[in-house]
Write a protein that binds this DNA or RNA. Structure first.
Lengths: 338, 338
DNA sequence: CTGTTAGCGCTTTCAA
DNA sequence: TTGAAAGCGCTAACAG
């Protein structure tokens, strides 16, 4: 492995001149540049990125810390992040926290040690401790998908509250009154926002007596469990609103298991789509967020923060992506209220 | 940020002694160890991983280079890789090639520059040039999911040929004769293996006159296109065999579009399952590979190669995971041959 | 436009 | 069991 010294010697210049040619920084005359490039080619020189990082304090690496790459929403978001990062010459390290604050802390610590240039974080909790750590290290940070309690940070997310309102309103307009929302953990902002949007719609349409929601996990198991619980009560809902795609899939499975027909017996709608790549039948009526674009935008914002790190720390952005109601079969048509 | 020097000074020892304590290497007396640890805690010292890598030539990072994390099969495989790597104290860099040999070469070059300790590669082509490059750098390599032309490398994959045989046989036993296989690119070993398994089953059951297969992309678009083409012929198949999950989804969409009912008009089966996370209805009869386990095993093998890099280069392993036939609705029941 | 000097923070090597 | 010296390969800072 030839080093910058070998190239310098062969080209008859100083190492720093080789560095300038390689990095396209500073002034180098054309003739010298040509000599250096010839030497580089001849020796097959490849810069040592680690030495560069040690000296320059930059790694050209960002981290994406989120719950689980196996969830289609985050999976596509990750692709948006990777594509945007690659375009800007950055690498991405991906970490799955499985919604555990402890795992999140571990990873953040590791990533700060690795001296990543910036972090994209989907916090496991609205009171994330890791954020303090990141701030102490002065590492640029963009929060993705969710809000956190304490402000003063850039956020890129979808409109959970508005989406939940829209979806609830749609059900109400079909004639539903007994609408049960099975939301995610109450330590996560998106599930709280979705509850709020749901409640607001119920209130606006005079259905405050029918408000009925649960906080559980953002998982299939949780969706199935809560569904079984809900349908063991004497008053059963006519519509189920799943707080994310996994919850809805779990609900669907539980309902089928119990012999309910969808949408004839129960209407089912969901926050978050299952992208067409993954599903044999587009069946579910959903509020769809644009995960790819969210990831892409968050990455671009993060990288712009990395590049002018010396700007004022004020002026944090909160970018909220609009969501889209996609009507399919699972919500059924107008219903008769007896 | 305190350095190893600051700790050494505070503890009244040499930097190398601190290094020994931190890395648990070499002899350090208990009393000195205690003093050093106290100093570390007091100063909040965190080792600089980059300096360590520069000196030690190890990065504790491996790379996973594959086609697309958005494909459920690879997505779950990635999770297996990440979990296994984390357990062994390694980080993972993920790169999507989108089946492009050029992208693959670019990434491999980058990764070698980054001095990753090992590479997991799903090659875009059975004649992958990147492999030469990796060998030159003496970087440990494990090929995942696919074979390559030139041997002398560790491989971890599923049994494509056996799986295709099994699935074809199942269709034949249901009474199907006109079975069309829509396989992936012929530059990829899995799609060739699946064709071979299919052909063998057709031969074994005396259906050599009915052999009918296509090579296309491993994508929905390709699956849909080929399906339209196949069903525009006068002799239409009674069963479609999709060469991977995306092809099958595309085929399903095209068939629905053309008004065919599944499985009544056409039976459809697929190589690769859609994991339950991703699908509202488990509907497709499939050959399922264990992607998580494949990723996990490949990572463990890679890491063991990294750890005893000085062993003989002989004795490469080829680990072939068995596959499982899962019968669901899309294949229908016995049919009558007129 | 080019070069000199110095040093990033750690660990290898050898010596005590 | 501990340490001194050296240097991994690069670039920041400054000088010319």
């Amino acid at each position: 492995m030839p080093t910058i010294h070998d190239v310098a010697k062969k080209a008859g210049v100083a190492p720093i001149t080789v560095s300038r040619v390689v990095n396209n920084s500073g002034y180098v005359s054309d003739s010298v540049r040509a000599r250096v490039n010839a030497a580089i080619d001849e020796l097959g020189y490849v810069p040592n990125i680690i030495a560069r990082s040690l000296r320059s304090k930059r790694t050209n690496t960002i981290a994406l810390v989120f719950t689980d790459i196996t969830n289609p929403f985050f999976n596509i978001l990750a692709r948006g992040v990777e594509d945007a990062a690659f375009e800007a010459g950055f690498n991405v390290i991906i970490c799955n926290t499985d919604e555990s604050q402890e795992q999140e802390d571990n990873y953040i610590q590791l990533l700060l040690q690795k001296q990543v240039d910036g972090i994209l974080l989907v916090p496991a909790d609205t009171h994330s401790k890791s954020i303090e750590l990141i701030r102490k290290h002065n590492t640029p940070l963009v929060i993705v998908d969710r809000c956190i309690e304490d402000g003063g940070v850039d956020i890129v997310r979808g409109d959970s509250e508005g989406g939940a309102y829209q979806l609830t309103k749609y059900l109400i307009e079909l004639g539903h009154k007994r609408i049960t929302l099975m939301s995610g953990p109450n330590k996560v902002s998106t599930s709280v926002d979705r509850v709020n949007g749901y409640k607001q719609a119920m209130l606006d349409y005079g259905l405050e007596d029918y408000i009925d929601y649960f906080h559980g996990g953002y998982s299939q198991e949780s969706g199935a469990d809560v569904t079984r619980q809900v349908f063991s009560r004497s008053e059963k809902p006519t519509a189920i609103f799943g707080g994310n795609n996994l919850i809805s899939i779990g609900a669907l499975a539980a309902l089928r298991e119990m012999g309910y027909k969808i949408p004839d017996d129960v209407a089912v709608v969901s926050f978050d789509d299952i992208p067409e790549n993954f599903s044999y039948f587009p069946f579910m009526t959903v509020i769809a967020q644009p995960p790819y674009e969210i990831g892409q935008k968050a990455t671009q914002l993060l990288i712009s923060r990395i590049k002018d790190n010396d700007e004022l720390p004020t002026g944090f952005q909160e970018i909220v992506f609009p969501v889209e109601l996609i009507i399919r079969e699972s919500s059924g048509g107008k219903i008769n209220n007896s």
